[in-house]
Amino acid sequence: MIYLTRRAEFSASHYYHNPNFSEEENRRIFGKCNNPHGHGHNYVVEVTVAGEVDETTGMVLDLKDLKAVLESEVLQKMDHKFLNKEVPVFATKIPTTENIAIEIWKLLAAKLPAGRLHRIRLYETDDLYVDYYGD
């Protein structure tokens, strides 16, 4: 078993707001992240795939295929987007880094050309990241 990780970057904006909370509660809980016009990050996503090395190729999976899936399933949907308004799932779910990582897992898990998805690591900044293992 070997673990292969590929990294990609995308830039997006978001804000944190729960319509079930009052304005005061939203401001208290989410602080400056509640600014309704949003704010942006350069996200770094690391996709880790687990698998066996194919004896004929020496590879877990073809990196071009992984790159293509990452491009079509994640980057095209999230890069240079205002996540709350332009990514349908975040119309009803707050686009925290936690929730974005879980969504990226859902977008990729069934689309991998080989191996199985082991981990999504999503950096919001150099000093803050989340890990999701599918459970």
Binding site: G51, A114, R116, H118
Partner: peptide, 19 residues
């Protein structure tokens, strides 16, 4: 480490998906 525990559990219980 949950990552290690998870890895060990998955290695034991799940076949590798190849498609």
């Amino acid at each position: 480490h949950p990552e290690k525990a998870k890895r060990e559990k998955k290695d034991e219980n799940r076949p590798i998906a190849r498609n």
